[in-house]
């Protein structure tokens, strides 16, 4: 009798991960808050005038990295509809598009900030929160669960609780907080991820911004599938934000929304927020399969990406 090579597979036991179409770089042209809106269209035009040269520079430098091919560059614009609601899509979006066009900028995709919290019933923020792996302080050997201050995330060890837990025992004295990867001295950062009032959770601005970066990097999956896909625009914009898709594709000819790298051109007032974003992102464990997918795709194009995802994010503060 000859031996038979038999195999058995079960679909449910295997894991599949969808891949995202990817540009080379995703440029965020701006982030609109209520105060910007209230300041009128001139504020927007100012912002776009500052951004335009940087966007052009990034486009050129990517074009140099892929000689003979077209650099895939997509642009996006984020509107805050989470912390405050103002105006309507029908009124606001044409104004934004007009201001951008005056500065020779095309906005390919427009996104709503609240979509970073929940989009089509998918809790993106929760998805990211569950993927946080806390930066361990020295002498963290796994014997205790990670020290957590609920709703907060830091880059080191916090000051110990002062006082004594045991009667007649030695009291713990105050000690400063320490950054884990410090070089000589600490820059200790402690970020509030969310707060809760009356059972309702509000995600912090840096946390949603971290989700936004991960979306732009195409690194989020829900049960192996892409959690959000851009939706082509309708002829008219709706009268309320809820009716606007999470990400609207404004330019039919745009390169893919997600990209290997991101660039955000921001006002320096966002500096502390972005430090918090990097603190969060450096503790997010992205699915290994997704990381490999992206590495294989970029490798196939002859592009070597940075290993660490925080190094794929860049900023211009102007």
């Amino acid at each position: 009798m000859t031996s038979v090579d038999a195999t058995f597979g079960e679909v449910a036991a295997e894991r599949r991960t969808a891949s995202a179409p990817l540009s080379h770089v995703s440029i965020e042209l701006g982030h609109l808050y209520m105060e910007d809106f209230e300041a009128g269209p001139e504020r927007l035009r100012q912002q776009f005038r500052r951004v335009a040269p940087w966007a052009a520079t990034v486009r050129t430098s990517w074009q140099d990295r892929v000689p003979g091919r077209r650099a895939r560059v997509s642009t996006c614009f984020l509107i805050d509809d989470y912390f405050s609601r103002f105006s309507t899509p029908a009124e606001l979006i044409p104004m934004v598009l007009e201001a951008a066009a005056e500065c020779d900028l095309t906005i390919d995709y427009l996104a709503r900030e609240s979509a970073c919290a929940v989009s089509d019933g998918v809790e993106l923020a929760k998805l990211v929160e569950d993927r946080l792996v806390d930066d361990p302080s020295p002498d963290t050997n796994g014997s205790r669960p990670p020290v957590k201050e609920t709703g907060w995330l830091c880059n080191g060890s916090r000051s110990p609780q002062v006082g004594s837990v045991q009667a007649m025992g030695k009291a713990q004295r105050w000690a400063p907080p320490v950054q884990n990867a410090k070089r000589g001295h600490s820059v200790f950062v402690d970020v509030e991820l969310w707060d809760e009032h009356g059972g309702k959770r509000t995600w912090s601005c840096p946390f949603l911004a971290a989700v936004w970066q991960l979306l732009r990097l195409g690194l989020l999956r829900r049960e192996g599938r892409l959690p959000v896909r851009p939706v082509p625009r309708d002829d008219a914009f709706p009268e309320d934000w809820e009716s606007l898709p999470a990400i609207v594709q404004l330019n039919p000819a745009a390169a893919p929304f997600s990209a290997y790298t991101t660039l955000s051109v921001l006002s320096p007032r966002f500096l502390p927020v972005e430090l918090a974003v990097r603190t969060i992102l450096s503790q997010v464990a992205v699915d290994g399969d997704v990381l490999e997918q992206v590495a294989a795709r970029s490798g196939g194009e002859g592009i070597k990406l940075e290993d660490e995802l925080v190094d794929r994010i860049s900023y211009v503060f102007t």
């Binding site: 880059n155 990867a181 450096s282 503790q283 997010v284 464990a285 290993d307 660490e308 995802l309 925080v310």
Partner: peptide, 12 residues
């Protein structure tokens, strides 16, 4: 020396 945490998370 110990590197930034993101270095280690890139090698799960």
């Amino acid at each position: 020396r110990r590197l930034a945490w993101s270095h280690y998370l890139a090698r799960p």
